[in-house]
Write a protein that binds this DNA or RNA. Structure first.
Lengths: 179, 179
DNA sequence: GGCAAGGTGTCCGTTTTCGGACAGCGGCGA
DNA sequence: TCGCCGCTGTCCGAAAACGGACACCTTGCC
């Protein structure tokens, strides 16, 4: 498989940044690093990265993961299509659940296994690409019609109402899309 | 706030089913129970429930959570709009992460706090309602156009191409939607 | 058995949308 | 300074889509 384009590694520990970069080097064309969420924000140009690998604690002794959750929120606000993989040495179930609910693509415990790290970053990158490519309106329409018909058990009148269409209009679009 | 309509509690332990039903009774009109994923499948009529509260282990001594993951997959296949909250006494970070990645809305450890249980089930129910209501095509179109314009920094030619529209057609729809 | 309600699929005069073409602008490189 | 490229916004004859109305069907209830 071809290499991923560019990812950003965000960790206060230089050794961790280097270890992650080495683990990912066979899979990724360009790897940049930031030592803090502030530096991360400076490096985030829209469209530049396909994935952010993000630590959750940036102060000595800090273990709550709150900084990582906040940084995740900042990324999602700046570029909702950009996928984030979180990593921490101190995560429990609650932090993992909160992370994924707030939009992280994956959550890894340190120390990681290199193959798991590569798999998580690759999957996240594919999701970023899918998000960025978007869909032509025609495909969105086809998907929405299929979903409405399924949701209403094939009842044309109800599906049309749910979609905001008249029945003849829905018939025409169903024909167009091969339903 | 008005009560949730109906939820299904799936757990092999009758005491757990009862405790959960008692905890949720103030918030939910109708609560049904199943003692196994097989029984759960029998009870799942499309549109009947707004949330499933699902245990992850159904055999004495079993702790892997695999049965719950399989049951989650069955629900998501039968009714993708239906939200699932998973619960287990034996879950670690890996199981929690896998659960959410496979589509669970939340993941709770036993023994739960009643307020956390009610909050999770309520949030899941709201997500089910949102999924079921769907969106009129016009709103899907508006959202897709907004997203494409943002993704392409306001470049009309590129956004039109991404959406599968000609430029004049995109201009007309932008006008219609107030862009 | 009849009636009402809500469903089905199609029609056609009217309305809306289509996209190639046009004119013009700004940035960049030679 | 000039030319090229890719962008912008609009036009208009042609094509497509619109939805109220029509005719008919099925189911459930009295």
């Amino acid at each position: 498989m071809e290499k991923l384009a560019a990812i950003l590694i965000v960790d206060d520990d230089a050794d961790v940044r280097q270890a992650a970069a080495l683990a990912l080097a066979p899979h990724v064309d360009r790897i940049e690093s930031a030592a803090s969420p502030e530096e991360m924000v400076e490096r985030l140009t829209p469209g530049k990265f396909e994935c952010v690998l993000l630590d959750m604690n940036f102060l000595p002794g800090e273990r709550s993961g709150r900084a990582g959750i906040d940084a995740l929120a900042a990324i999602r606000q700046a570029d909702p299509a950009l996928s984030v993989v979180l990593m921490t040495a101190y995560g429990g179930v609650h932090l993992a659940v909160e992370s994924l609910k707030r939009g992280a693509q994956d959550f890894l415990l340190k120390p990681w296994r290199n193959d798991a790290l590569a798999a998580a970053v690759t999957a996240a990158t594919l999701r970023t690409r899918a998000e960025r490519s978007g869909m032509p309106l025609e495909e969105l329409e086809r998907a929405a019609i299929g979903k409405a018909l399924a949701q209403h058990d094939g009842n044309i009148a109800q599906a049309a109402a749910a979609l905001g269409l008249s029945r003849p209009a829905l018939y025409r679009r169903m024909s167009k899309h091969g339903f």
